[in-house]
């Protein structure tokens, strides 16, 4: 619920920011309905009302929200049927492990974007694919290497010759 409070506050701040920024649009009267600042301010107010309603009800924590969805799906499917078994094997990983994986993976994507201007695109895409596959699998190095190589080479030529993309 603590996370919920932070998020509710954030939503209210965002809404207020939209309202304030609408008032600051240059040389425009926000109360003139035909001015370019009228509609943004109106949207900001609607967002603020929604944010207050969300704050009143409280934000679900991610875990409870996921559980609720599972229950909902089971009810929609069939009331008498026992819940279906999970079709994905449950991975043995802690929440901390998931967070580290998410941060590292996002960092790899950011790095990919930053280096696009400096490294040959085909080489860079191979390095990104191989690196991220290794990060996610931690083994199966040969398979990751082969798949990354094929995908980066094949799609490079497809993008250049079929879709006419000019890489940096």
């Amino acid at each position: 619920m603590v996370a919920g409070k932070y998020i509710s506050t954030l939503l209210i701040v965002i809404s207020l920011a939209v309202v304030v920024l609408s008032f600051n649009i240059e040389e425009q009267d926000v109360f003139d309905p035909s001015s370019p600042s009228f509609f943004p301010a109106l949207v900001g107010v609607v967002m603020l009302i929604s944010a207050l309603m969300i704050a009143r009800r409280g934000i679900q924590s991610p875990s409870s929200a996921q559980e609720e969805t599972k229950q909902h799906v089971a009810v929609e499917g069939n009331d008498e049927e026992e819940p279906e078994k999970e079709m994905y094997e449950k991975e043995n990983i802690t929440q901390k492990g998931i967070n580290i994986r998410l941060i590292l993976f996002t960092a790899l994507v950011v790095l990919f974007a930053i280096l696009m201007n400096y490294i040959n695109f085909m080489v860079l895409s191979f390095l990104f694919l191989f690196g991220s596959m290794l990060l996610l699998s931690r083994e199966k190095m040969l398979r990751s290497f082969i798949v990354s190589l094929i995908v980066s080479v094949a799609f490079y030529y497809t993008f250049v010759h079929v879709f006419h993309i000019v890489f940096p």
Binding site: S132, L136, R143, S144, S148, F155, F159, I165, F167
Partner: peptide, 20 residues
């Protein structure tokens, strides 16, 4: 672990490709 990096690779190209 194979599919997800490939999808991200596509999203990067897709977002780059519209305006280079």
């Amino acid at each position: 672990y194979v599919l997800m990096p490939i999808i991200v690779f596509f999203t990067v190209i897709g977002s780059y490709g519209i305006n280079n």
